[in-house]
Design a binder for these strands. Structure first.
Lengths: 306, 306
DNA sequence: GCGTGCCATGCGAGCCTCGCATGCCATCGA
DNA sequence: TCGATGGCATGCGAGGCTCGCATGGCACGC
């Protein structure tokens, strides 16, 4: 019973069904001798006669009848495995695990997932949140198939080791500055950071170092960070109420709010951030993940135009 | 995915568990190259990479993770098949289908089944009833594994074709004649049929030909068959009430009734009937059936003594 | 009594799988 | 920086396995 060939089980099943080695052989496209021998081998492995040889064919013995449901279960299970692999390959099944940094889950990832699920309804998707370093660690650990991460566009030190990860560029994200509707610069399309020296900045944490401001503070520029707000929604609410201005990554804006103005910050002040889709290098990328990258690209293109 | 070797699935499972081809090979007693090649073959059959080769071992791809539960199910199912076959062989499982003629189910078969079930509690037993010809047909058709049948002891024409059935002699059944307790012959141990010329016979059907009397009527002997009763219990009740006498096969007597006498009929009048256990010739006899025959023999020996 | 249907088996060719040995690659430590 | 180590892949040859072909034995039916 060790080293069973699954074909032998299929042969066994067919012989049991036909009640004849010869006709089973015909049905399977084998020679009668081949089937006879395969049955004999299976019987030796089982340690018991599986068929009684009658003058007009064969019938299962009690041992054969005992084995038959198991053999059919095995054959069926293998067929199920084949089918599931085919589904995986054909993007009509399986699972893809995506992780993304929080801002990306505002608009970019949801839009990509929406079109992806429409295109491949059979593929399950799980979404995880986190900060870029944790996402990359999880990616390397195999916790996710695909990570949407951010990286500074600066050509210098790249936080993403190209030897460990394969990255797919999605978009270059610019930084916006949100000002109240009646702010003196509300009508402008772009602005420099230095123009907001007198404004109160609503930041995400108490220390300027932990906020977006840290990326490139002009020398001598020390913004007032009076108000701390935990998330983008709260920040926008505070800005709309006239309590100050706030730096907002463009991706965090789901749609243009009516009661405040968004100015694009000059690239000199805040270098654009890259948004990337990363996969683990050296690991086979699931077909679903590859497809999802395409949808992420399309979603990114749609967002950049807006 | 056709022609999968079940050993390859076991290998696949082990490699996935160890995360390393080399250590899996050690655990399986194979060479690293053999395991490497088996994995490669399985991957070719699956049409996809199942493992990503990392510098320090291997990890499942999404396809591999998809296949793994199926592989484990197959391996487990084969192990279950092995276990069930072993149980069948070891008489700790399985099923045996017995059929018997009605009289044998009064005492002989129940006693044999009782001791058999005590010896092999794991073996299921199904019991069917019928007349000997039908039992033999069912046996030949594979509806039963074992049939308890009766046959005349006459050495002449044997109703059981030895080419179609293997018979195991259980006992020679003698015929009893039941008489009321106050019958004039009640004190005798044996009797001749002719001594009952004046007695009313309680028979199983209206025509003498269909009763036990038919087996060998002395010339000129024409018993009175006034009363017809459907079964042995009713017959015995009628006899006990003094309404006549009745021929009873010894096997139909579960225990000696108190209110009537049982005389053994002379063998010249009613040749003893053989009770046999039959199996289909040319068919493998299940181990449980063979064991049950032994228990039938013991039960028969116990009944003959009584 | 012979033809037919069915299964088992000896024989030889081809293929497959194994172990051995080697090569390649990445990592780790001196 | 370079060798040691650990891990996987692969060329090679031996042995085993499975196949098809052909034959033989057996039981049944005309």
């Amino acid at each position: 019973m060790t080293g069973v060939q699954t074909e032998s089980l299929e042969v066994f099943r067919t012989v049991a069904r036909y009640g004849s080695i010869t006709s089973a052989a015909r049905a399977l496209g084998y020679t009668q001798s081949a089937v006879s021998r395969q049955v004999a081998v299976l019987e030796a492995q089982a340690g018991a006669r599986l068929f009684d040889r009658l003058p007009r064919g064969v019938v299962l013995t009690s041992e054969g009848a005992c084995l038959l449901p198991h053999a059919e279960a095995v054959v069926d299970r293998l067929a199920a495995a084949r089918a599931e692999l085919a589904a995986l390959r054909g993007l009509s099944g399986g699972q893809v695990r995506v992780s993304a940094f929080t801002t990306a889950t505002a608009a970019l990832v949801p839009r990509a997932l929406a079109s992806f699920r429409q295109a491949h309804p059979g593929v399950g998707v799980t979404l995880a949140n986190g900060l870029t370093p944790a996402l990359l660690d999880g990616l390397a650990a195999g916790d996710a198939d695909l990570a949407v991460v951010s990286a500074p566009a600066a050509a210098g030190v790249h936080p993403i080791d190209p030897a460990r990860f394969t990255v797919h560029h999605l978009l270059d994200e610019h930084l916006l500055i949100a000002v109240p509707g009646q702010h003196r610069l509300a009508g402008r399309a772009t602005a420099r950071l230095a123009e907001f020296a007198e404004d109160a900045f609503i930041v995400g944490s108490a220390t300027a170092e932990d906020t977006l401001l840290r990326v490139s503070l002009p020398p001598g520029f020390r913004p007032r960070t009076d108000i701390v707000a935990p998330d983008w929604t709260a920040k926008l609410g505070l800005v709309a109420a006239g309590l100050g201005v706030a730096l907002i990554p463009a991706l965090a804006i789901r749609s243009a709010p009516a009661d405040l103005a968004l100015l694009r910050l000059d690239a000199e002040d805040a270098p654009v951030r890259q948004v990337l889709a990363a996969t683990a290098a050296g690991r086979t990328v699931p077909a679903a993940a590859t497809a999802l990258i395409t949808h992420l690209r399309h979603a990114a293109a749609g967002l950049e135009l807006a």
